[in-house]
Design a protein around this nucleic acid. Structure first.
Lengths: 321, 321
DNA sequence: ATGAAAGCGCTAACAC
DNA sequence: GTGTTAGCGCTTTCAT
């Protein structure tokens, strides 16, 4: 009787002692079968080997461990079929709930998922009825744009990801809004397209270098990997950063610390996202009905890839975060 | 009756149809309770947010998913207590087996772990009775040393990790053996100590630069993070790599691609380790008794941190892997 | 070839 | 307060 009711302390102790001496261990399985709760939670992300998602996983993991819950982690590889298969697996082992970063924007299956879910990432916006945790892309973009402006970069070239992704839409909308607010025409901006890989960033920078973009060039990439790829392209072209081209990334992956110069970037609170999502999920499991939709702020990590064109001493860059 | 025995095909089909129309789903929990098999596997590694271990996890994850098994991943943070707690959690949820990278060399608890286990990493050597998968440190070190020699670096400075770790012992022994085989005195080698972090690599390189090491300096680090930290220190000292100092890392993390120059390194087959370990575990679960002890070879990833002192054109470095 | 029954280890509800 | 009982959904065994 390891619950909690009205038992005499003496009996309790006796039972506990007996249990200890006998090496008794409660069978979690039977307990789960009876109670309908397994104490297991699921996490479905694109790729556990991707530094950003690994951080998110770590945040969720730590939070789960705090309350003795176990976490099942699955990588969907941005593949809808694989995601569905993982979701099926989660339901099969009867996890109590799950955190998922949906591959596509339409998540019909998720709606009828039949268990508590909290969404992470941009797609959350599509499902107002589900609790979610994401980073504030709009605020991050605004932060980056203002920082660039303070350094004298007024019209950076943008390097965005795939059109399909909601993150792309959000990023573009934030850019649009910023320039409209500035009284400038957003349709005259130069926007390059990549696919979030370093290779695509590299290719994009090569295109930019041969194009007639006004110098000095400044690139604002939608993620760090593309920014890093672009940095490599600058170097391979025999140019130098930040003298010839300035680069600002987005994500805040640790790798940015080791490039030369260190990658200036807008960091998303990766671990915080995992942590908060887990908190929300656990709240939901304990019966709270608050459909929170948390949006965490991004912050600036100034390193060395941005040249200061403003001439003012006050806005000098910190060398390496 | 979704097992397999001697049932009339007609009945089977009838039942299957009924199940489908009724939307019946077998309860995995009850099945597990009855059969004693949960179809869940565990993985305990130091840190899922560490790129190397994330790769290992990914390898294991993919293999597990292939056979419909779910993987519980835990991060021990090189903390014995946390490891024990995670092991307890794994037993609690009745995983069928686990892959673990033990924090310490003595794994008394593991021996009596009471479930199929396969070890990964250096500590495996301590437990000949357990199946294991690791990378061939000795071969990797030999490979690195021979490559360095072919470039004209005959006595590199070594940067090793903590003394306690078995990986340290293995690395040092490999170095020792190499120089003894060369007829040189291994005791005259310069060996610096770090703790596998970039910061410790940075500090070590600073010490080396002020010391009276014979120039040109060549560093062989026991992991990539320390190598990368050292590279940063070289740059901060106003020196350049590989002209003033050559650096060779060990691990093969993707981050090494983005440093400038790209980090030359000895790569461990991270994903392969996870994959093979999972294969071994599953073999064990299906009743095979072979106590395999797999050792995977490392390979050279030449990038730009090594200067060619040999003067021969044949051994020119590939620019960036 | 099929149906009935027992029981995996636990918890919730009820009677003592 | 404490002991008893009935299942959670499945699989295995035994009788039909």
């Amino acid at each position: 009787m390891s619950g909690a009711k009205n038992i005499s302390p003496a009996t309790l102790e006796a039972v506990l002692n007996a249990a200890k001496t006998l090496g008794y261990e409660r069978n979690h399985l039977a307990q789960s079968l009876r109670s309908g709760r397994t104490g297991m939670l699921g996490l479905v992300i694109p790729d556990i080997a991707n530094p950003f998602w690994a951080e998110v996983a770590r945040g969720a993991q730590d939070k789960a461990a705090q309350s003795g819950a176990s976490l099942l982690i699955f990588s969907s590889d941005w593949n809808l079929e694989r995601e569905a298969s993982h979701l099926r697996a989660l339901r099969q082992v009867r996890v109590d709930g799950a955190i998922v970063n949906p591959v596509e924007n339409r998540i019909d299956d998720l709606a009828r998922f039949g268990m508590p879910v909290v969404l992470i990432g941009s797609s959350a916006e599509q499902h107002p009825e589900l609790p979610s945790v994401g980073s504030d892309i709009a605020q991050g973009v605004e932060l980056g744009l203002n920082h660039l402006k303070s350094l004298g970069h007024h019209r950076p070239v943008f390097l965005l990801g795939q059109f399909g992704r909601l993150a792309h839409v959000k990023f573009q909308r934030a850019i649009h809004d910023h320039f409209v607010a500035q009284g400038e025409d957003p349709d005259t901006l130069v926007i390059e397209q990549g696919d979030y890989t370093a290779e695509s960033g590299n290719a994009a920078m090569q295109r930019i270098l041969v194009s007639s973009s006004p110098r000095p060039i400044c690139l604002f990439a939608a993620n760090d990997l593309m920014a890093l790829g672009a940095l490599l392209a600058v170097r391979d072209a025999g140019l130098s950063c930040p003298e010839d081209v300035s680069i600002l990334g987005f994500d805040g992956i640790p790798t940015g610390l080791f490039s030369d110069p260190g990658l200036s970037t807008i960091a998303k609170p990766a671990r915080g996202i995992g942590d908060r999502a887990m908190t929300l999920l656990q709240a939901q499991l304990s019966g709270e009905t608050s459909h929170d939709r948390i949006v965490l702020p991004c912050h600036l990590v100034p390193r060395g890839t941005l040249q200061d064109l403003s001439g003012s001493e006050t806005s000098k860059l910190t060398a390496r975060g």
